[in-house]
Design a protein around this nucleic acid. Structure first.
Lengths: 211, 211
DNA sequence: TGATTGACTGACCAGCCGTTCAGTGACCTG
DNA sequence: CAGGTCACTGAACGGCTGGTCAGTCAATCA
């Protein structure tokens, strides 16, 4: 019982530190987010962070993992549904856009860690701890696309490249939305992306027969 | 005459410092590239850089401008040709991929500056000096797409979003190529991107009539 | 040839940031 | 209530980086 109470307090501290870290990283970016400011944001002293995280790297890593696990969960849920590919895409982009709206703080962290930068040591660290999380996301999407190719729903191309192209294109639009004072409805942007992905951009005079 | 000679020397110094800066930024990333290492890479003393650039910000800004101007030049050339949209896209992606292959050092600088990060001061600085360069590129492409829409070649959608989607998708694949030990031919990746852009991903049983 | 210039150097400085640790005080325990 | 525990604090430390400037020296000048 006593132990459980301590664990709850521990858990609360860890969580509030991570949430503070996400907010600060969202404001200042990956490199400029200092331990001092994260501590201040969490309303604790700088040293306290080191009672719960070995060093700055571990804090960022755990924070990133916690957040991306939530994204994974949502996206995997909709990808697991046996929908036709067009609907799968729609649900995927919808889930991704909603997630980044609700966790706008996380978005910048995500963008920062996608591309390794910093000292060679930091780069190695990122490649080992964060790139896999990102790649796993692309790979999961790629295998969904590959299945659709085998079912004859999608043209045969390199599925990993296709997944990269679509996800990064969608992220670019999601990022653009964050910088707009009055972005259009999410649904209309999802429609735009799905439309581009499915039909491409050219106008066809002849009506297509989907089957 | 004397002045001209001095100018040549000056020009040479500026250029070699900028090239060194690009190489170091390519290796270490935007934030970890130190003045000391840039100086060492250029084979001069740290103080010498400050004879040609006011501070670190100015060095990065001028370096970025010089490099992106070259990219602009190439891309504008192919966009100005009166080609049908599919060929325009092909030439655009081809030019972009070739540029980033020949200037791989610049690529990381480009990726870093696309997304503002750092202190709020740095962010404002980037937004003022670098974002316009990037946005201008998107806007130029967007207006090409808009013209194609008016000619009835392309479906009517928000041209800026369309441009964002295509360029960022293409950049993601270009970036992926850098991390592959044996990437496929550039031409095949350009074909992939153009194919996606023009026709989308779904399989149509019926043959399309392009006119 | 001696004086002058100014491009170049690199040791130095101030400030920042991650990390540490001796100290504090609230809370439990016997 | 005295003694002990421990989560928490924040001043201090060490390392690093952008920027400075007194000094050096080769080229130029008179």
């Amino acid at each position: 019982m006593v132990k459980s109470k301590e664990e709850v307090v521990q858990e609360f501290r860890v969580q509030s530190i991570q949430e503070a870290a996400m907010r600060v990283i969202a404001r200042k970016g990956m490199n400029a987010a200092t331990m001092a400011e994260i501590a201040k944001e969490a309303g604790i002293a700088k040293g306290t962070i080191y009672l719960y995280f070995r060093d700055r790297d571990e804090l960022v890593e755990k924070t990133f993992e916690r957040a991306i696990a939530q994204l994974h969960e949502r996206v995997d849920t909709v990808l697991a549904l046996g929908l036709p590919i067009e609907e799968k895409l729609r649900e995927l982009f919808r889930a991704q856009m909603a997630f980044f709206r609700e966790n706008a703080e996380f978005f910048r962290l995500y963008l920062s860690l996608r591309i390794p930068s910093g000292t060679s040591h930091q780069k190695r660290w990122q490649k080992r701890h964060c790139a896999p999380q990102y790649q796993q996301r692309i790979t999961a999407f790629a295998s969904v696309l590959e299945e659709a190719m085998e079912r004859g729903e999608v043209r045969r191309v390199d599925p990993y490249r296709l997944a990269l192209f679509l996800i990064e294109g969608a992220i670019a639009i999601t990022f653009e939305r964050l910088n707009e004072s009055a972005p259009p409805s999410e649904e209309s942007d999802v429609d735009l992306i799905v439309g581009l992905a499915v039909e491409g951009i050219v106008i066809r005079k002849q009506k297509r027969s989907t089957n």
